[in-house]
Design a protein around this nucleic acid. Structure first.
Lengths: 250, 250
DNA sequence: ATATTTTGTGCATGTTTGTGCATTTTTATT
DNA sequence: AATAAAAATGCACAAACATGCACAAAATAT
């Protein structure tokens, strides 16, 4: 059995049972306790579990930590997701598109939040199936494999039949004059539709992307209600956005 | 044997088994371990696999693996999935609903199969995003969390706008007089719609469920084209189904 | 057709990694 | 404080690995 397999086994065990014992694992996996201890240490160093005397416990209540691939600026995305948690109020109906930041956000939604989330992202929907209260509506259509989202006319038309309180967009580029923009045409169409069908628009955007632009424009900056960023509210870069009426959440 | 062939073999092996060992591969492919190591390194450099001590593992380890352990009759379902692999012919458009058996089937689809799969199951769609050629269409709607499928009028209406070559149903109950039946009303409606929109209907069914019935009837047995089972074709239990014109695949 | 380069493979080598055991240190509990 | 369980540390050994090299097959050039 490969070390990798043991690690996965331990993570799965933790996911379901929330704790593991060094001794029992050594029995089940037929290796010495030392080996298990080393495994647990490695996983703990990676932040995947929390090592305790006698074994380990799940680091957080949220599962699905391990399948994350390497993501650009993941730390910052997580920080943004944390700040964005309060954007979704009880009983609201909210659009969410794909992207890592939104994925981190859904992982962190409090388990007592009752709301409806409408999404075209397969990972977002998958994670939400573990949430006890949130109602999920999935926007069907042709699947864009690389991004694990649905796209196309069907999605756009389904969106146009809905009116939502809010729309939370993982944003690739934002610029105080150009507005928010995307690199993929199909995704642009979907985001535009979501935006048009919502009362409020929140953009989750990492610092690098502020002041940049992409070929396809989704909307003017005036249409953005909130912008969630790790930058401080008084950072001069944000000034033009504030003047344009965007509320900064940081 | 060409290097290319070995690489394909390794990837295929990884798709189904999720791990490969350097030693076993060297035995099966009759080359030295060094060669295998070089193969694995190349594939790892291309980002196709994850190299570990002793072999390699799939880069995106199956996110739903943890549920597999608790699945009823998983062995048999895998066996059925293996037999059902050939049901999907190149270029066909196929409906697939949720359920573990179908999930096992999509895990095993050969990577050179080019087809379109239309599904309402989130796990099925997730798995297929790793497949190089298959086009995925997702049927949007309200998500039934427990089964990780979409249901409701939206799904049914989307299905009715499609005409498919085939429909592959994970079947809870089949009876030669009652037909195929389900326990959940919403899922019944979806399956009925899929069935009505397809030229052929294949039912994947484990032995226990042959001759049983559930409250909601999906269709008459005459509408079933193929039935995939682990039972032998000449098993007397299957006789009434054969007489009703069902082709037995075993 | 012949010569030259490139590619793939296996083998010998030294190196790294993973594991178990023995010993000492730390921790939790009474 | 006493004690037993768990963890850290150092060590040994085997398995897996990387590297350089030789050689053959294939591709390319002459």
């Amino acid at each position: 059995m490969l070390k990798e397999e043991r690690h996965n086994f331990i993570l799965e065990e933790l996911r379901t049972k929330n704790k593991v014992l060094t001794y029992s694992l050594s029995q089940v996996l037929s290796v010495s306790e030392d080996t298990i201890r080393r495994d647990l240490k490695e996983l703990a160093d990676l932040g995947q579990i929390k090592k305790v005397h006698g074994g380990a416990v799940a680091h957080s209540l949220n599962p699905f930590h391990y399948k994350d691939r390497e993501v650009y600026a993941l730390e910052e995305k997580i920080a943004i997701a944390e700040k964005a948690k309060n954007l979704i109020q009880p009983q609201q109906v909210v659009f969410m598109d794909g992207g890592t930041t939104n994925l981190e956000l859904v992982k962190r939604l409090p388990s007592d939040l009752k709301a409806t989330i409408i999404t075209n992202s397969i990972p977002v929907a998958t994670h939400l199936t573990d949430h006890p209260l949130i109602e999920i509506v999935f926007l069907g259509g042709k699947v864009l494999k690389s991004a694990q989202v649905t796209i196309g006319a069907e999605v756009v038309s389904a969106i146009s039949n809905i009116r939502a309180d809010k729309c939370i967009l993982g944003t690739r580029s934002i610029h105080h004059q150009i507005g928010i923009s995307e690199i993929d045409w199909e995704e642009t169409m979907v985001k535009r539709a979501m935006l048009a069908a919502s009362n409020e628009v929140a953009c989750l955007v990492i610092a690098d992307k502020i002041g940049t632009s992409q070929p396809y424009i989704i909307a003017d900056i005036k249409q953005v209600s909130q912008m969630v960023t790790t930058l401080s509210r008084k950072n001069p870069i944000l000034k033009p956005f504030i003047q344009a009426g965007v509320e900064i959440i940081s």
